[in-house]
Each structure stands twice: as C-alpha cells, then as structure tokens.
Computed example of a mutant assay.
Amino acid sequence: MRPDLRPLLLDPARTARLTGLADLDPALVADDFAAPGVAAELARADVLFTFWGCPPLTPEVLAGAPRLRAVVHAAGSVRGFVTDACWERGIALSSAADANALPVAEYALAMILLANKRALAARDRYRAVRGQVSWQHEYREAGNFRRAVGIVGASRTGRRVIALLAPHDMELLVHDPYLSAEDARALGVEPVGLDELCERCDVVSLHAPALPETRHLIDERRLGLMPDGATLVNTARGALVDTGALTRELTGGRLNAVLDVTEPEILPPGSPLYDLDNVVLTPHIAGSLGGELHRMADSALDELERLARGRPFAHPVVRERFAHSA
C-alpha cells in the first residue's frame, strides 16, 4: 500500500491486532515490490495485507513469492493489482468491498433525497431573495413521495442503496443485465431496460462497474431521455458517463447532477462543472473517508483471523464474478 496511508488505515489498536494475528513488521510498508528490503520479505510471505496503492501482482512478482497463498485487501476493488497470474497460482483473495459499499450507499441516499426535495436549489434561491416567497408554490414539484428512482447496477453498493431507500415511499427501478427476475422480486424493485429507466426516473443513480462494455453507458442519447429537471448521481466511476454530453446538458440547465467521480478523475480547472449551480461536485469522497477507513480495516482483520484459524473468507473475490465486478 502507499506508506502514507498505513496510519490512516491502522490506528494503534488495529496495528496491535494485526501484529497479534500475524508475524510481520508493521513498519515495512511496500508500494514497490522491487524496493530494497522488500524482496526478502516477499520471499517468505504467506499473506499480503494490501490497501490503496498496491502494485500489480505480476508473474514476476509472484515468482519471487513462492509461499504466497492469500491476499487480504483492506479496500474495495482489487482490479488495480490482481492479474491472471493470481488465479493461475490459486491464490485466495478477499476484499473489504462490502464494508466500503456502505458509505457510498449512504452518500447516494442522502443526495437522492436532497435532489428530490430540491434542497440545494431552495438554498440558493433563499440566499438570493433573502426573504419570504411562496415556497409551496415555487417548489410544487419537489418532494420524495412516490418519486421514481433508478438504480443502474444491482452491485453491492446498488443493493445497499436499494435497502436504504426501501423505507421511503418511492418507486424503485433497476437496470442490471445480470439481475434475475427472482432477485428483483426479493429486492422489491422493478427491473427495466436502461432506456426506460432513464425516461421514467426523477433520479438516476449509477452503481455499475467500469468495464469496456459500460464505458459511456450514459451517453448523449440516454441523457436526452431523462426528464427535464431530473438528477444524475454518479458515485461509481466517471467512465460510465460521457462527460462532454453531460456538461452540455448541465450547462443548458435542463438536468442536475451529483458527481463524486468524473472522467478525468480530476477535471481540468476550466471545467464549467466546478461553477454550475445545478451540479454538486465532490472529490471522490463517497467511499470510505476518515474514520470510515477503520471499518474496512476491521473487515480485513476479521478475514485474516479467519485465515489464521483455517476458516474460509467471508468476503472472497472469486474468478467467476471478477469479470463483471468493480
């Protein structure tokens, strides 16, 4: 992992638990497997405890780790470092994706509720007029009662969002090509095609993985299907949306957006998205932040304890689902 992140992930209590579960030097934090002193430790490692910034586990790296049998990842996606060589070696993989899904879902829930309530627009309007207007008349279309919310991707996070929205009196639509009719019934959602979801929903919230087939899933045509005043919420990956097409819609004022991720990940300084009143732009904070990192650390430490006791992972990463997961 990146060395500067270790104290954020592992406070003294969690570091103590880690050293109680495994034989390791907590001061040895590697973000380069070729760095001095790392190769010798890698050669005798049974397990890697990883986090953001882990370099790829290439065949060459694995050749230098003949004892390695498991990787416990204290964050969500493992796509940045897992290679085919890991599967070929039969290395067991675990991730804290379930733990990370919760804060993302909480962020999405908050933004969906605020978007339907027109809270940010009302804030700006109230600030501008500095006095009393007929809010009930001005925002007669606002509110969450019976609003249609579309979830794109019944992923871990997507399902968390569905569960958090369940107590609210809303119409929940889901698009996911891998969601069965039985699972949709169990979730209490209506499965629909993506075009229909865009046409019918007041808020469209993205929770699909970034794959070649999902690049620009929300393109100019589908943005055009969204009703006037609808809101797009993206807490997944920026590549799911055609940024140019979205910028044009937002600049024209027809749509609203909540963007925690963009393409590129950091927008150029001249992007109008920084300044538009109908855009909430945040710097990829929906996922675990601050004290929420400890939830992921706890999940990973639980997995390490299971491994030490000869028990299977509770949150394994399996090859069969890897191609379609984040």
Rank of each mutant, 00 (worst) to 15 (best):
Y107W: 15
A108D: 04
I112H: 00
L114H: 07
A115D: 05
N116S: 04
K117E: 14
R118T: 07
A119D: 02
A121I: 05
A122L: 12
A122I: 09
A122Y: 04
R123Y: 10
R125I: 05
R125L: 14
V129L: 14
R130L: 13
R130N: 15
G131M: 12
Q132M: 13
Q132G: 03
Q132N: 09
V133N: 01
W135K: 03
H137S: 14
E138Q: 12
Y139K: 03
Y139A: 07
A142Y: 05
G143A: 12
N144G: 07
R147A: 15
V149A: 03
I151Q: 00
I151A: 02
V152D: 01
R156P: 03
G158W: 02
G158L: 12
R159M: 15
R160I: 08
V161H: 01
A163M: 08
L165T: 04
A166Y: 06
A166C: 04
A166E: 14
H168L: 14
E171L: 11
E171T: 14
L173R: 05
V174W: 03
H175S: 12
Y178G: 05
Y178F: 15
Y178W: 15
L179N: 02
A181E: 15
D183T: 15
A184L: 09
A184W: 04
R185S: 12
A186N: 05
L187C: 07
G188S: 09
E190I: 08
P191W: 04
G193V: 09
L194H: 01
E196V: 14
L197M: 06
L197N: 02
C198I: 03
C198T: 02
C198H: 00
E199N: 02
R200F: 01
C201W: 00
D202H: 15
D202S: 11
S205M: 11
L206K: 02
H207A: 10
A208K: 01
A208P: 02
A208E: 03
P209S: 10
P209F: 13
A210R: 09
L211D: 07
P212I: 07
P212G: 08
T214R: 06
H216N: 13
L217N: 03
D219L: 10
D219I: 08
D219T: 07
E220P: 00
R221N: 07
R221K: 14
R221W: 10
G224D: 10
L225G: 06
M226D: 01
P227R: 15
P227L: 09
D228L: 06
D228H: 08
D228Y: 03
D228I: 02
A230V: 09
A230E: 09
V233S: 02
V233D: 01
N234H: 14
N234V: 11
R237H: 13
R237F: 08
R237I: 10
G238W: 06
L240F: 10
V241Q: 05
V241T: 12
G244E: 13
